[in-house]
Nucleic acid binder design. Structure first.
Length: 889
RNA sequence: GGGCGGAUAGCUCAAGGGGAGAGCAGCGGCUUUACACGCCGUUGGUUGCAGGUUCGAAUCCUGUUCUGCCCACCA
């Protein structure tokens, strides 16, 4: 591209298409295990195939892209695997609703027919999130895109299931599980959520505690129980009391009659379940419909009577109530008890009600035969991996959450009564009922030899396949070059809300199947909330669409905003205004480039260069900035990295260096010096393009190619250029000191102008008495003229009526005749002196403290002595000036 | 009922034992030949509160208040 005349503003839309094409042509994203360099591998947290890009995705993927681009430029063999998750329940729902909208009941299609519809839907709209991701400018290796229902990944899931089963870690059992009566499927404990009250604090909902009496079979009175779910009394098989409760102790072993059903119910003593102080101290026990009661049933060998159908209606066991919905039945049972004179009142009560994460239906504890993973033995090594530091969380505080979950882990219910998902690799013999778990459908029953076997109709929890993601995407269970080269992965970037669902389960599966934890680092990032600290959600209507933001601004500005906001351990409060800040930064940098290109003419990288102290200063500052940005990136402090880079560009390059180049570039000057100035400008901008590329990939590519030095430096894409290293830049302490001194002088003059409200147009003279000082300052005459509007002059004798500046203990005078009157300067000086006295006092007091001298480290004492000396000298100079000024008055 | 964060300028956040910083907002100057999406200068803080440790505390310890979150089977 020709560098010619630069447009006055950056065109993000053109840049996006131009550079994403260029990257694709150059195979920038493409990973090749055969290439050299240490591996840096990342697997994307696969978004749901039903998903649309939201702020969380944008943040999550920008972070990964920053890391991936940084490491790629830094010589690593990088792979970033993208993909999507089949999201069993969510996807089945979406397609089901779509069919319903066309008047089709999905069940009429049959299993095969429905699944075909899902695949058709996926082919048509399922890739939306992928193309949305691309607009962020992320550099995933799209040739490796995976879907958790891909054939290869299905094979991995089968292997996962079969091996765990062989090892006795997967079992089938009748248990009380969480049942969603709306979707009619089992759920894991994690998929059950509890409502939050207005404050979002507690999760109790208003309900009632209904009391009713059971009459003893022998007619010797009644016992009153309290319940929040009266309808479950149809499944009661015991009444529990505390064994030490004097009221009921003697009743243990006796029975009561069920009022509607032909059933005698025993009184049992159970110290674990019963709190004598709560309710009536007697608890009805329904082992088939309550987790606590189930445990009581196990302890006392009680029958478990299921009163529900899968759809939440009562079954035949419920006798007169059969066919009623569970909530209708509740009222009917209460009415009936009342009618029989057994109701004993009702108290208001607050309780936790579990709802399905997906459907929102109130979850029912339900007796059912399902598949489970025995988690305890699997959790041990996964726990140890973090404890021993083989996998590290950033920020570290999240390890606590991981530990607490892993240490109290329960068995995982993995079967789902859904059609869409990984089918369970288990077959039941039609003849004898024997169950076969196998990689392929068995030819014949191992028990009776019959050939008719039926595959388990259920599918697996989506997370059962996600758990394999870090190695299934590389070809596991086969041994592949990818697996050798890229597993374990380097870092997992995700939000805290799926630490249990996903991170913990990947740790478990990864260690169990490969012997190694799946990632070295886990970076947990923040949630993006709205400006009122509310979670973004469709129902609240406060969702900000990342694509809208990109359209209004640019992907580069958007990404930079996210990174500037990305402080560890804090949520991000979204404020569109901040994208404006980032856009201004893009513009600022663009303008700096414009300035550089304006002066490109005559630049010759092979011609002689005569750099001044300012060129060497710029180089040194660049090296320091590179070091700071690298350090921040290496420790996942993205906000610091972005802020350091911005401060460097704005405060050092633009506000100082570019201004310092003007006297040289706009006037006649030594050609070798001019050449060096241009060289430094281009070099610095080139370093900035590379430094910022991970944050703003398209803009920096544009910048890189527009640099007049681009062709000369060999061309190529910045995406493939080397990330700058601090050691590439010479850092000379004397140079830094010299320029800082000049800057202090300029700032002192500007400060005076500000205080005096003197326009920069008003020329001032800067008088120096000391010949040595004058010689030194003389080297910066051009800078002082350009930046502070002062001309240097030697004086033999101090003129009357001068403003005084003290820079590094030296007195500089500015004659005020005809500019401001002496009284005004006296007033200013008095303020300055007051401050100076305060400073000196503060420092001297500390030095006067004998304890400080005695106990503080020697270097701190020395440091303070120097400070006191400097402050004291400055103060003296100021006082003398004041005295002289008073005389002059 | 357990556990984990957070509280610093008007706002959003830095500083993790040595005179509290940035961006935005505010105020006062600048139509300076890259940029008014700009430049220069500048106001603003008893670091939630109360104790303690230390020569020295925003920083470490104890308590406390507010605030956000996670886990848990109280009928």
């Amino acid at each position: 591209m020709s560098s010619g005349e630069l447009p006055s503003s950056y065109d993000p839309v053109a840049a996006a298409t131009r550079w994403s094409q260029a990257w694709a042509e150059a195979d920038v994203d493409r990973a090749d295990p055969a290439r050299p360099g240490p591996a840096f591998s990342v697997v994307i947290p696969p978004p749901n195939v039903t998903g649309r890009l939201h702020m969380g995705h944008a943040l999550n993927n920008t972070i990964q892209d920053v890391l991936v681009r940084y490491k790629r430029m830094d010589g690593f063999n990088v792979v970033w695997v993208p993909g999507t998750d089949h999201a069993g329940i969510a996807t089945q729902w979406v397609v089901r609703r779509q069919l319903e909208a066309q008047g089709i009941d999905y069940r009429t299609l049959g299993r095969e027919g429905f699944i075909e519809k899902v695949w058709a839907w996926k082919a048509e709209t399922g890739g939306a999130i992928v193309s949305q991701l691309k607009r962020l400018g992320v550099s995933c290796d799209w040739s490796r895109e995976r879907f958790t229902m891909d054939e290869a990944l299905q094979k991995a899931v089968v292997e996962h299931f079969v091996r765990l089963h062989e090892q006795g870690l997967i079992y089938r059992a009748e248990r009380l599980i969480n049942w969603d009566p709306m979707d009619q499927t089992a759920l894991s404990d994690l998929e059950v959520e509890y409502a939050k009250d207005a404050r979002g604090q507690t999760k109790l909902e208003k309900g009632e505690l209904f009391k009713f009496a059971y009459r003893f079979s022998d007619g010797s009175g009644e016992i009153v129980v309290a319940t929040t779910r009266p309808e479950t009394m149809l499944g009661d098989t015991a009444i529990a009391v505390h064994p030490d409760d004097e009221r009921y102790k003697a009743r243990i072993g006796q029975t009561v009659d069920h009022p509607f059903l032909d059933r005698k119910i025993p009184i049992v003593g159970d110290a674990i379940l019963v709190d004598p102080a709560f309710g009536t101290g007697a608890v009805k026990v329904t082992p088939a419909h309550d987790f606590n009661d189930f445990a009581v049933g196990e302890r006392h060998n009680l029958p478990k009577i299921n009163i529900l159908q899968p759809d939440g209606r009562l079954n035949d066991v419920a006798g007169p109530f059969a066919g009623l919905d569970r909530f209708e039945a509740r009222e009917a049972v209460k009415a009936k008890l009342d009618e029989l004179g057994l109701a004993r009142g009702c108290d208001e009560h607050f309780l936790a009600i579990g709802r399905s994460q997906r459907s929102g239906a109130i979850v029912e504890p339900y007796l059912s035969t399902q598949w489970f993973v025995r988690m305890k033995p699997l959790a041990g090594p996964a726990l140890a991996a973090v404890e021993l530091g083989a996998t590290k969380f950033h920020p570290k505080a999240w390890e606590n959450l991981y530990y607490s979950w892993m240490r109290n882990i329960q068995d995982w219910c993995i079967s789902r009564q859904l059609w869409w998902g990984h089918r369970i690799p288990a077959w039941t013999c039609d003849a004898c009922g024997k169950i076969h778990v196998a990689r392929q459908a068995p030819e014949a029953c191992e028990g009776c030899g019959a050939s008719a076997l039926t595959q388990d109709p259920d599918t697996l929890d989506t997370w059962f396949s996600s758990a394999l993601w870090p190695f299934s995407v590389f070809g596991w269970p086969d041994r592949t070059d990818d697996l050798d080269r890229y597993y374990p992965t380097s870092v997992l970037v995700t939000a805290f809300d799926i630490i249990f669902f996903w991170v913990a389960r990947m740790m478990v599966a990864g260690i169990h199947f490969t012997g190694r934890p799946p990632f070295a680092d886990v970076y947990i990032h923040a949630l993006v909330r709205d400006e009122n600290r509310q979670k973004m959600s469709k129902t609240k209507g406060n969702v900000v669409d990342p694509l809208d933001v990109i359209e209004r601004t640019s992907a580069d500005a958007f990404r930079f905003t996210l990174m500037l906001s990305c402080a560890q351990g804090r949520d991000i409060l979204w404020d569109e205004k901040r994208v404006g800040d980032a856009s201004r930064f893009v513009t600022k940098l663009w303008q700096a480039l414009r300035y550089a290109t304006m002066h490109a003419e005559g630049y010759d990288p092979s011609a002689p260069m005569a750099p001044s102290v300012y060129e060497r200063w710029m180089e040194a500052r660049t090296g320091a900035a590179v070091a700071r940005v690298r350090d921040a990136l290496d420790t996942y402090r993205f906000n610091d990295a972005a802020a350091e880079a911005r401060a460097f560009v704005w405060d050092e390059l633009c506000d100082w260096y570019i201004e310092l180049t003007k006297p040289t570039l706009y006037r006649e000057a030594d050609p070798a010096h001019k050449n060096a100035v241009k060289h430094t400008l281009f070099q610095t901008l080139g370093a900035i393009a590379r430094m910022l590329h991970p944050f703003m990939p398209m803009f920096t590519e544009e910048l890189w190619h527009r640099l007049p030095s681009h062709a000369a430096s060999g061309g190529g894409l910045v995406a493939l250029a080397a990330y700058p290293k601090a050691e590439d830049f010479a850092i000379d302490a004397a140079v830094l000191d010299e320029v800082t001194w000049m800057q202090d002088t300029v700032t002192a003059v500007r400060n005076l102008r500000g205080e005096m409200e003197l326009s920069p147009r008003v020329p001032l003279r800067l008088l120096v008495g000391d010949a040595l000082l004058l010689a030194r300052l003389g080297r910066h005459a051009g800078a002082l003229e350009a930046l502070a509007g002062v001309s240097l002059e030697a004086i033999a004798e101090r003129p009357v009526g001068c403003a005084t500046l003290v820079v590094r203990g030296a007195e500089l005078l500015i004659p005020l005749e005809g500019v401001v009157d002496i009284a005004e300067e006296l007033e200013r000086l008095t303020k300055v002196i007051a401050k100076s006295a305060e400073d000196l006092d503060f420092l001297a007091k500390r030095l006067d403290n004998p304890d400080f001298i005695a106990r503080a480290p020697a270097d701190k004492v020395e440091e303070l002595r120097d400070k006191v000396a400097a402050a004291s000298a400055r103060h003296e100079v100021l006082l003398r000036s004041q005295a002289r000024l008073r005389e002059a008055q």
